[in-house]
Simulated assay, not measured.
Amino acid sequence: MRSRPVLVYDGDCAFCTSSVRFAERHLRLNCEVTPWQFADLGALGVTRERAEYELLWVAPDGAVRGGAQAVAKLLLGAGRGWAVAGALLALPPLRWLAHGVYRSIANNREKMPGGTPACAVPTGRRPG
């Protein structure tokens, strides 16, 4: 069992990488951070398909949270005011709103600042 959570992101996506770098600069991260392309996904208990689809938070006990709830866990672990934001993101109805906002951004991340065509979530991975 790991002693620290692991944040798994898409290292090929400039927007995702920039977002993670922002978090590393401005939050007190209490986790390992790794692009899915260099992670042992099997050991983490996640699939490549899921890692391509969303940000992942893998707790030391193996519990996996994705998308907005991965962001909430990241913020909870960062302490200070960030933890309050993380706690709010985990509570309904903000949880539902956060999920919608996260999916909208993730599904259009190639259009976000710093995004490139390589950032696009594969069409077959998008819901609906």
Results as ranks from 00 to 15, higher is better:
residue 8 V to W: 04
residue 77 G to Q: 10
residue 88 L to F: 13
residue 54 E to P: 02
residue 21 R to I: 01
residue 17 T to W: 05
residue 9 Y to H: 15
residue 71 V to S: 11
residue 72 A to G: 07
residue 56 L to K: 02
residue 64 V to T: 05
residue 79 G to V: 10
residue 90 A to P: 01
residue 61 D to Y: 11
residue 19 S to H: 08
residue 87 A to P: 01
residue 90 A to Y: 00
residue 55 L to W: 11
residue 16 C to P: 12
residue 41 L to Q: 13
residue 87 A to D: 05
residue 62 G to E: 02
residue 29 L to I: 12
residue 49 E to F: 05
residue 17 T to N: 14
residue 94 L to E: 04
residue 14 A to I: 03
residue 62 G to R: 05
residue 51 A to P: 08
residue 58 V to L: 00
residue 42 G to I: 05
residue 14 A to S: 15
residue 21 R to C: 03
residue 31 C to L: 14
residue 12 D to Q: 13
residue 71 V to N: 05
residue 25 R to I: 03
residue 82 W to H: 14
residue 39 A to Q: 08
residue 78 A to T: 06
residue 25 R to T: 11
residue 92 P to S: 12
residue 51 A to F: 11
residue 68 A to R: 02
residue 54 E to G: 03
residue 91 L to N: 04
residue 57 W to A: 00
residue 88 L to C: 14
residue 14 A to D: 12
residue 89 L to F: 10
residue 59 A to H: 15
residue 47 T to L: 01
residue 42 G to C: 05
residue 8 V to M: 01
residue 17 T to K: 15
residue 26 H to T: 15
residue 23 A to L: 14
residue 64 V to E: 08
residue 36 W to R: 07
residue 84 V to R: 12
residue 36 W to T: 08
residue 83 A to F: 03
residue 78 A to D: 10
residue 69 Q to T: 01
residue 42 G to R: 13
residue 71 V to W: 14
residue 85 A to S: 09
residue 75 L to I: 11
